[in-house]
Design a protein around this nucleic acid. Structure first.
Lengths: 328, 328
DNA sequence: GTGAAAGCGCTAACAA
DNA sequence: TTGTTAGCGCTTTCAC
């Protein structure tokens, strides 16, 4: 199998009887070349099936027209929309998106970012758990946009944590719940701390108690473990950091014969694939992730340090219901 | 925000008081340099936080140590294991994996592959639906490995379609089903045709009838549509191209008040996230995808045109049961 | 063992 | 408008 030498600008130039720079211009800056040459060169390039070498193109200019999207956990269906949205927007702007998964490990994210540094024009970091100062440092090398993480001076897109917490607490309190428990995720996740703070605030305002449990791994397995802790805490409603956990909770409660929502109500975050057909269907908070993906790439390319707050919406399904033993 | 000039080999060379070529060697071919210089240069490089520019490194050598994984549909949870496995193996071999999603569009896959051509040392194509000749052509540029697609002379990893079909048909026939229907996926998918052929073969051998319906989009929505067609076909058991479809089928049947498995049994393929907690839990065929991902990268890097057939395993859950009106 | 120099394919001054 | 030339940062001959 000979991976034959690729067609280069020089080949095209020779074939077309012009200089390489002319070919370069005809292809990347068509307006700076006469109509005749342009047509001719482009025809030759097409005939030879010329493909620009992106490495070579990127070396002198320092621009590769590639963007990196670093996700925290690619096995979390929540990321789907983000990926699709980011890809759409990147493609529209003529960029190729490369995707990498840091498996929830900040060090791995750092490693991946460093490796890709010379190959991409910028990064979108989704739910990054790296310390602030590392992000600042990374921005020194390339533009950055953050999803579900706020940091002064950085472009970012976050879902409205305060409003989602308000909706959750409002919903549960309306059903008579006064003893809540929050099943927390990783403490180095921005959303974790925002969610907890907002839930605590709104609970207090509504006259309900809420306990912070965990941290637990933000996975199905983490939810299974969290269920037992939540149950032991004596709350009447459990709010999970994300839907993966919430589904794990549901699974464990079913296994232990705890009726949901009869004995215990459960709420998640993200409205992932599966949330509407698990058993019972999960009450959770949805946000427009695909839009988030698009917006992130937009902000990144414009390099505007804006923070976009996306609305959230509580999807009430059957994992939540009236409290059994209201103390009212 | 000044995206400061990165530290280059030249910087290190100047600082270390040696030639760039020596630094290059000390870093990439440590054995070709004296112990003293090696230590010294490496220390300086570390101190300056030198990061090789991958573009520049790849230009002369033509090798980038990046691999592309092109998936057909990143929103299909089936891909998770593949991605993780491929990433693991790539990382172990010192390669970075870039991921791209072709959304089920062969033309988009072609476009992505072409764009990445100069940036990667090889491709893993997962469930590619491109015509054979295009794959042959692509291989002319870079090494290729295929997942769930067999093509003479190409390294590939496939799950055992014949055996999975045998297990499915055996299971259904044992439950008394004699009238089956297959809800097909895209006709340009290798697995689609293999599955159909094997299902037809095993049904015939077992004395059962099977109808091929579709093609339907291999998505949840496709399954919803397929359910009605399957129901109208009068079969007692439905076998779907994948689990996404099967879950859509389940959802639609529930909506229409058709009891599963009372009135109709349903089987899927892939055992994706959600298959065990949908309602009712789905009987489906599992295969070791993570291993597939690892094997694919292994074959790709070795450039061995082997075909690895991975075993499959029927996971019987409650979406299948005895036929209601056996004709026995 | 180390350095000087050529060149990977492309872009971007600068000249013509 | 087009051609010439000098790099981009690195690897790799080829001398020394």
């Amino acid at each position: 199998m000979d991976h034959g030498r690729a067609v280069t600008l020089e080949d095209v130039a020779r074939e077309a009887g012009v200089a390489v720079s002319t070919v370069s211009r005809a292809l990347s800056r068509p307006e700076r070349v006469s109509a005749r040459t342009r047509e001719h060169v482009q025809a030759v390039a097409r005939r030879l099936d010329y493909r620009p070498n992106l490495l070579a193109r990127g070396l002198p200019s320092g621009r590769t027209r590639m963007l990196a999207l670093l996700v925290t956990d690619i096995t979390n269906p929540h990321q789907f929309g983000l990926i699709r949205g980011a890809e759409t927007q990147a493609a529209a702007a003529g960029y190729t998106l490369v995707l990498a998964d840091s498996r929830g490990l900040p060090e791995l994210e750092a490693e991946l970012a460093a490796r890709l540094a010379s190959s991409v024009d910028g990064y979108v970091l989704a739910s990054s758990r790296r310390p602030d100062d590392e992000l600042v440092e990374l921005r020194g090398r390339r533009p950055l946009a953050l999803y579900n993480r706020e940091l002064a001076g950085f472009p970012s897109v976050v879902s409205d944590q305060d409003d989602s917490s308000r909706q959750i607490v409002g919903h549960l309190v309306a059903l008579g719940h006064r003893e809540l428990a929050y099943l927390g995720g990783p403490r180095n996740a921005w959303a974790e701390n925002e969610r907890w703070a907002a839930l605590a605030r709104h609970s207090r305002a509504a006259g309900a108690e809420i306990a912070r449990l965990g941290p637990f791994p933000p996975t199905l397995e983490g939810g299974v473990a969290a269920a037992d802790v939540g149950l032991a805490a004596g709350a009447t409603a459990l709010v999970a950091f994300n839907d993966l956990m919430a589904i794990g909770v549901l699974r464990r409660l079913e296994q232990r014969g705890v009726a949901v929502p009869g004995a215990l109500s459960v709420v998640g975050h993200d409205d992932i694939f599966g949330a509407d057909f698990c058993h019972p269907p999960l009450t959770t908070v949805a946000s427009p992730v695909e839009e988030a993906g698009r917006a992130l790439v937009g902000l990144l390319l414009d390099n505007r340090p804006d923070t976009l707050v996306l609305p959230t919406e509580l999807r009430v399904r059957t994992s939540t219901g009236p409290v059994r033993n209201s103390r009212g």
